[in-house]
Write a protein that binds this DNA or RNA. Structure first.
Lengths: 206, 206
DNA sequence: GCAGTTTTAGAGAGCGCTCTCTAAAACTGG
DNA sequence: CCAGTTTTAGAGAGCGCTCTCTAAAACTGC
C-alpha cells in the first residue's frame, strides 16, 4: 500500500562510504551523496534526519561490520595466542577486502561529527566498543595478563598496530603490499610474547 | 619604510593550529583563523595565497618541528637499539608536550588538502620525509637489518606504534596517561629485538 | 613634511551546502 | 477504481565561506 522506494537506505549509505573513502568525512555532504547515488536531495532527507544522522549511520554501520568480523576471527581459535595472531592478521585481511570502508574507519567518530549524533548512535557505538574490549580482556586473562594495562597492551598489539600498518599503506591512495598480513602477525606475536605477566598497575580510563 | 605588521605569519599559524586541534582541518577556514587571531580576513589573504597555502604552511611547519626534534632524539645515542628506543619514547614525550600540534599531526597531509598545495610545499614535505626515512634506514643498518622491509618494520616500531598509542589516548579529547612512554619504549624494544636479521630472529638478551 | 611601501580593515560578490516545503508519482489493500 | 501511504522530485531560503577590491592607516628614508 505504498510506493516502492527507488533509493533505499543501504544504497545511499554505500554512496556515502564511497565519498568518504575518496574525500573524507568533509566530502560526505547531503548534496554529494545525493549526486553520487543519483537521487534527489529530498530522498536523503526522507531517509535521514539530517547530515549528522547520515554521518552517524554510515560510521556505525561500517564499524559494526568490522567489529562483527573481527570478533568472529578472534573466536575461531581455542588457543589464546593463536586467536590474538588471527585477530591481528584479520584486521589487515579485512582492510584488503574492504578498502573503501577501511579508509572510512581510518578516520575516527569525532571526524564524523560524533558530538552532533543523536544519542542512540552514540550508545550503539559505545556498546560495540565495549563488546570488543570485553573480548580483548578475556583474551588477556587466557594469556595470563589481567587488568587495564594488559587490555591496553593487547589492544595495541591486536588492533592499533595492525591499523597503523594499514594506515601507512592506504594513505595517499596506496594499497596494501602482499606481505602486510605476515608482518602484522609477526609483530603482534612479538608484543603478545612480551606482555607483562601480572596486572595490577595504575588504572586509567579510556 | 613600511607599516609594521600587527599580525605576523607565526601568529596566524598558531591560531590555525589551535583550530585544527579542536575542529580538525575542516575547521581551519580563513574566516575562522581570522576570528581566532583577532585579525581581519584581509590580513590572512595578505599573508597566504589562499586557503590551500595556509593549510600547507600549517601542516609543513608542524611536521618539520616534529621531525627536527625526532631526529635530534635519534642522534643523541651511540647505540642503535638505545637510539631507537629513545626515538619511540620521544614521539610520546613530544606529543605530551605539544598536544595541539599533535592533534594536528594525527591527521594526514591529505586531510590538509595536499592535492591543492602549491608544488613548493609538496616537495618540502617530501624532503622532510626522506630525511627521516634515511635516518631510520641507517639505524636499520646499524642493527644488522637492511632493505625496504627492514625500514618498514623499523618505521612501525619507532613511529607508527608510538603514534597509535598517542592517537588512541588523544582521541575524543583525552590526554596521555603517565605510563605511555614506558609502554611505547617497551613495545618498541620488543619489535626491534625481533627484527628479521640475516640468520633469523635476534633474541633479546636476558 | 613628504614620498613610498606595507599592512590593516572590512564590505560585498559569488558559490555551495543544509534544510524546508510543495506537489506529484507510484504503489497496495479493499 | 479508490483511499491511503510512502517516496520521489526539485525549487528556494538562509547561511557561511572564499576571495576580491578599495580605502585608509602606519611606518621609514630622505
Amino acid at each position: 500500500m505504498a510506493r516502492p522506494p527507488r533509493f533505499d537506505t543501504e544504497q545511499l549509505l554505500d554512496a556515502a562510504v564511497r565519498l568518504a573513502a575518496v574525500s573524507g568525512p568533509a566530502g560526505v555532504t547531503m548534496a554529494a551523496v545525493a549526486k553520487e547515488a543519483g537521487a534527489p536531495s529530498g530522498s536523503l532527507y526522507h531517509r535521514f534526519a539530517g547530515r549528522p544522522a547520515l554521518l552517524a549511520e554510515v560510521w556505525v554501520r561500517t564499524v559494526e561490520r568490522f567489529q562483527d568480523s573481527y570478533l568472529h576471527a578472534l573466536a575461531a581459535h581455542d588457543d589464546a595466542r593463536e586467536a590474538g595472531c588471527a585477530g591481528a592478521r584479520h584486521v589487515v585481511a579485512w582492510s584488503r577486502a574492504h578498502p573503501e570502508e577501511t579508509r572510512l574507519l581510518l578516520y575516527g567518530p569525532g571526524d564524523f561529527g560524533r558530538e552532533s549524533w543523536p544519542a542512540a548512535y552514540r550508545s550503539r557505538a559505545e556498546r560495540g566498543n565495549r563488546r570488543v574490549f570485553g573480548e580483548l580482556g578475556a583474551l588477556g586473562t587466557r594469556l595470563g595478563a589481567e587488568g587495564p594495562e594488559a587490555v591496553e597492551r593487547i589492544t595495541l598489539a591486536l588492533i592499533d598496530l595492525p591499523l597503523s600498518v594499514v594506515r601507512r599503506h592506504l594513505r595517499d591512495g596506496g594499497s596494501l603490499p602482499p606481505h602486510a598480513e605476515a608482518v602484522v602477525e609477526d609483530c603482534a606475536a612479538a608484543l603478545l610474547d612480551t606482555l607483562p605477566a601480572a596486572g595490577g598497575r595504575v588504572p586509567h580510563g579510556d
